[in-house]
């Protein structure tokens, strides 16, 4: 116990130098977050004010059908997007790992969409999927006059339309992460598996994928955090429609309540719920990465 003050003073210069950064982090990130959570318990309208209403905002949130649809949409989009970006990203990485020619070119092409913002991606895919200008029109011009392809204007398929754009944008990035992971694996492991007579697909499945666990977890977290924030893509492609809210997502709900409906309290409550869901993703990850070393 007597060593405690000394420990505080050790590396004093470094600690002083780090202080501004620590303060910024505390004030901007933690402070902003706490502020949001606190005001989600008030009835703030256009401007924030501290008049407590308890859990009223949350009750209203969870009885609002628009919010419920947003959550449902996000769950569907999220699960599909996770499964397919990671699955396809890994498969593409495996293909790239077969010492193909022009690997650099392919990698650049695959990574290119990731360099585009979601707004641009959304607009590009809105055009591609648009019945007057995109795929439907092209196929019809080939002679198949009755061909119908208009996913964005059908409430049942609009989420698939979003999904295509999302996958197009994110798969290349996941592929690069996975490729880096595959390249990090000792070549001798492959040789040993070949001497053992393990078929290639089985080596990937039973040996390589388990070895790449950290890469998979990191990818999962990055992709999942991106999904929860999903907003611009929807704005650019569908603005939440068709039919008013067939492709609503939580981030859109937050934005609309804060800046359109001038109901800050409701927006804060919704964003607090989003924060909670991010934490639900992050905490198990942090535990696995940093706490679970003992059984590694």
């Amino acid at each position: 116990m007597s060593g405690q003050p000394k420990r505080l003073l050790r590396n004093l210069n470094a600690k002083i130098a780090a202080l501004p950064m620590i303060l910024t982090t505390l004030v901007v990130f933690v402070g902003g977050t706490v502020w949001t959570v606190v005001y989600s318990f008030t009835d703030s309208k256009l401007l924030p004010r501290l008049r407590w209403v308890g859990l009223d905002q949350y009750e209203r949130l969870w009885s609002n059908s628009r919010w419920l649809i947003s959550i449902e949409n996000l769950l569907f989009y999220g699960v599909m997007s996770l499964v397919f970006t990671i699955g396809m990203g890994f498969l593409l990485a495996v293909l790239m790992d077969q010492k193909i020619r022009f690997e650099d070119t392919f990698r650049t092409i695959m990574l290119y969409p990731f360099a585009l913002s979601f707004i641009v991606t959304g607009l590009v895919w809105q055009w591609i999927l648009n019945p007057q200008f995109g795929v439907q029109e092209i196929v019809r011009s080939w002679g198949w006059e009755s061909f119908n392809f208009d996913p964005l204007n059908n409430p049942d398929t609009v989420l698939y339309g979003l999904l295509i754009a999302g996958l197009w944008q994110g798969t290349g990035f996941v592929m690069c992460l996975m490729l880096a992971g595959l390249r990090g694996i000792d070549e001798d492991i492959w040789k040993a598996a070949r001497v053992d007579g393990i078929p290639t697909w089985k080596t990937y499945l039973v040996v390589i994928v388990p070895m790449m666990r950290p890469v998979f977890i990191t990818t999962l977290v990055i992709v999942a955090a991106g999904i929860i924030r999903l907003y611009d893509l929807v704005v650019a492609q569908t603005s939440g429609g068709p039919g008013g809210n067939a492709s609503q997502v939580p981030a859109m709900y937050v934005y609309d309540y804060m800046f359109q409906a001038q109901n800050l309290g409701q927006g804060f409550a919704a964003s607090t719920m989003m924060l909670v869901s991010v934490l639900i993703v992050l905490i198990p990850w942090a535990y696995l990465e940093f706490g679970g070393k003992r059984n590694g």
């Binding site: 000792d186 001798d188 492991i189 040789k191 040993a192 598996a193 001497v195 040996v207 388990p210 070895m211």
Partner: peptide
Amino acid sequence: MVFQSYALYP
């Protein structure tokens, strides 16, 4: 075969 880097399945 035995390798320099052991190449065990971790």
